[in-house]
């Protein structure tokens, strides 16, 4: 069971972003979200390094080497964009000005603990970047992740085994298999076509509940 592709996960997330939202894009999967926002909605994407109003990737040859996103890839600015120093940019997350940070995750616990900055011993010095700042402050934090590791081990768990980024912050999880709300435990709102609830439970390291209105996970036509 592979379920949705990375692009399909980000497409699915984009469908849920409300018009007018200020949305931070974490590195990894979240940076793929912007092209999939439905037309007619204005979403202001923030990049932690001081950009508000991030647009799509520039055409080849049109890159400004000093205009990059948090993942250090070249980006563009949309009309209405603004630039802040790090001091002002990092007021926007803990201060609750960002409506929804979209964050990649290694693990999420059943109470919404997030682990997305440190795995077990790759031998390199640790790096945290803006991960912890992004995870605090917003009323909603959406995690984007593969449902299991490459070896098939669950990444949604009763308790995270990796170092925490922040406790009790994730409110919604989008994976290649399901969309799950963190609400007094884990509530499954959508399951990918071809997978039943019992099978999803075996791939999840914590108890999940089926929402009464659970439906097949939507994908791009």
């Amino acid at each position: 069971m592979t379920g949705l592709s990375r692009e399909q996960i980000t497409w699915r997330v984009a469908q849920d972003l409300p018009d007018g939202a200020y949305v931070n894009l974490g590195i990894g999967l979240p940076t793929l979200v912007p092209p999939f926002v439905p037309s007619g909605r204005e979403i202001v994407f923030q990049s932690e390094n001081g950009l508000l109003g991030v647009g799509p990737a520039p055409a080849p040859g049109a890159e400004d080497p000093q205009l990059i996103n948090a993942g250090k890839q070249p980006v563009t600015l949309l009309p209405g964009a603004s630039i802040s120093s790090h001091s002002d940019s990092f007021l926007m997350m803990p201060g609750g000005h960002i409506d929804i940070p979209l964050l990649g995750a290694y693990q999420v616990s059943e109470r919404g603990d997030l682990a997305n900055w440190m795995t077990e011993g790759d031998g390199k010095p640790p790096g945290v970047g803006g991960a912890m700042d992004l995870a605090v402050g917003a009323k909603q934090v959406w995690a984007l992740m593969e449902h299991t590791t490459r070896k098939g081990e669950p990444r949604i768990l009763e308790r995270c085994t990796y170092e925490l980024t922040a406790p009790r912050c994730v409110t919604r999880i989008y994976t290649n298999l399901a969309m799950i709300e963190v609400r007094d435990g884990l509530l499954v709102r959508e399951i990918v076509e071809g997978l039943d609830f019992a099978a999803l439970q075996t791939l999840t390291g914590a108890a999940i509940r089926l929402a009464p209105d659970c439906r097949p996970m939507r994908t791009a036509a």
Partner: peptide
């Protein structure tokens, strides 16, 4: 190792003669 926003704010505090501040960032973590 310092979270990025905390790093910026610690430097700002240093520039402003502020002796310290409480932030939720990194609370409950290593």
């Amino acid at each position: 190792l310092v979270p990025q926003g905390t790093l910026a704010e610690r430097i700002r505090a240093g520039s402003a003669g502020i002796a310290g501040f409480y932030t939720p960032t990194s609370a409950g973590t290593r």
